[in-house]
Design a protein around this nucleic acid. Structure first.
Lengths: 344, 344
DNA sequence: TAAAAAAAAACAACCGATTGTGTAAAGAAA
DNA sequence: TTTCTTTACACAATCGGTTGTTTTTTTTTA
């Protein structure tokens, strides 16, 4: 019955117009060796026949696919979905496609998915590392083959390639300093992991240095290491803090979800925010400005970071061979002061 | 200096082992005409040489790319990012990749991106329509070429293809009925658009029918048509509702963001929830269980829908030619009763 | 031992666009 | 008019797997 439609190719156009496929190919991209008359004719016919170029063929021939691979822990976190959005919007403008893969914070998956991206011959990779990942040798296949690689946010500290990050140390410092300025004396902090150079560790360093600079003591009981950055773990940690003999009067939470859990736990216990307990979060997730009280936070420019990362890839493709350009892009963060920490 | 690495191909393996490329190709996929000894040898060598198959080449030859194209308004909405997540997880299990494109609710972009997906020779497309889209002829290129097409959530009402949806009518009915059971007599509703068959219209139909069934009057002043489903528009609409001579005592909001705006607007005016004003939302967004009071809502099984859609594509590829199977998959929704509507 | 059957691997075309090189036709210069 | 340039297009190889067909090798059977 219904015939199998075959895709229209440049061969079909060539046959119809009695031209060579090379001419068709060149005409479609306004090559200067093709006359205007022919170009017009070819484009017209291509449209009529419903020709759509086969990206795979072009990619195979040119050994690149105008595709950016994204490898991230998960896409459902607001920060990461905004990051993707920024990448996708930027890519779209330059006619790049975007392939997404979730590692779910598993090292093993990350290794497999990296191979899969390579298999797809993506023209660049943007990655935010899985929590589990210590060793990054599975990314060598990209560097070795001149495929630009950009790490974003959760970046390796020993890998010499493009990185797009915020200054987590400075952000932690600014957040803590803000609380100090609001009169807090015993500021708690939630963190995760302990290796030097990681994102949470940097924020913690900023926190510590802000305290030191203002001659406030560093109290280990006020620094809690979380297994996971979840609402539930946040509640647990906050209860632990509130059970202390001398309660903290402030908290720098390195994520808005944690800040929310702190605010709600405090409210449940009748602890007044911000008078008795000032809170500042991180990321400026949508929820932070909806919850009551609104939560002060540090902006985390997700879309901008995505845009920057995508631009690095697109630019880097045009000027290959610049071995020098393995730079780090730092984007700015801001302290957003809202109700949860405004005391003065 | 540093040599250009060339990708390792089956030709390289063939040369090294003195075998034909066809043998390599078959050995790598355990073809029965290749001896176990050879298979073992080939796989071993492939691994040693760091061979990674070129998906583009295979895709070009086989005219398919083991890739699922996703075309949605935006990825930053919780519902949609969960949907993508569901698709990606399912795709990954069958070794499919996922290409994502955002239409930003623009018809024009949707048309272009559809062409781009076709150009990538995706093996299937999952789409949630742009708000603006009325005409869906730009999807014919997929149907015409036997590329499975699945619409999710925001589906066209006149297009004969796979659809994965919830029963919006029933969900609207259940939500409204719940409010009625809690003793509400004047239930307001926010909606959008007006064409028959759309998602919001179906929910409204359910709302209306629930009222009718319980012999409550339909009051046009309690039904507000929004331009956009945003927090700001929600606040505006709620203020309008609260300014009425006789205030509504309940609200069915077809989205949690709107429900949040209602709850907060009511609180600001000193209207007690749920005693004076009961609210039920839609989607079970993360925020609905964090805000105070918690918001009752209708579950919207995003991940499951993604999984179902992806499975339709993967299955359909295996059994092509089943022209009959243009079915609609309905997933269940549940009423989650929380503080914002629990009166009894 | 020769012929038949089965197993294993080689051959070669193919997917569709791209691009370096070659060649005819048209126009310019001699 | 002849030769030299341009201009416009054709030819053909190429990217890297895949697969139908054929050939060679091995094993089985008569």
């Amino acid at each position: 019955m219904m015939e199998e439609h075959r895709h229209v190719t440049i061969y079909d156009i060539a046959e119809k117009l009695n031209l060579a496929t090379s001419t068709i190919s060149r005409a479609l991209k306004d090559h200067h060796t093709i006359s205007d008359k022919t170009i017009k004719k070819v484009k017209q016919t291509a449209k009529e026949m419903g020709f759509v170029p086969n990206t795979l063929a072009a990619g195979l021939r040119g050994n690149t696919s105008k595709t950016i691979g994204i490898l991230i822990p998960t896409i459902t976190q607001p920060f990461l979905s905004s990051l993707i959005s920024g990448i996708e919007i930027t890519a779209q403008k330059s006619e790049y496609s975007v392939i997404i893969m979730q590692s779910h914070d598993s090292y093993e998956m990350e290794v497999n998915l990296a191979k899969s991206l390579y298999s797809n011959r993506v023209s660049g990779v943007i990655c935010s590392l899985a929590m589990e990942t210590k060793d990054t040798s599975h990314f060598k296949q990209f560097s070795n083959n001149n495929i630009p690689l950009v790490f974003v946010d959760r970046v390796p500290r020993d890998y010499d390639t493009f990185r797009v990050v915020i200054n987590n140390y400075l952000a932690g410092y600014k957040a803590t300093k803000h609380l100090i300025e609001q009169g807090c004396k015993r500021i708690a902090h939630l963190t995760a992991g302990s290796e030097f150079g990681t994102l949470y560790n940097e924020r913690k360093r900023g926190y510590v240095d802000a305290l030191l600079e203002h001659e406030l003591p560093i109290d280990d009981k006020l620094i809690i290491n979380l297994k996971e950055m979840t609402y539930e773990d946040g509640v647990k940690a906050c209860n632990q803090l509130f059970d202390l003999k001398t309660r903290p009067d402030g908290l720098f939470a390195p994520g808005d979800i944690l800040a929310v859990s702190a605010v709600q736990t405090a409210k449940k216990r009748g602890i007044k925010i911000p008078e008795e307990f000032a809170v500042i979060g991180f990321n400026d997730d949508p929820i932070s400005k909806i919850i009551e009280p609104n939560i002060s936070t540090i902006t985390h420019p997700a879309e901008k970071m995505g845009k920057a990362a995508a631009e690095l890839i697109i630019k880097n493709l045009k000027s290959v061979k610049e071995e020098d350009a393995k730079e780090i892009t730092f984007l700015n963060t801001q302290v957003l002061i809202r109700e949860s920490s405004r005391r003065i």
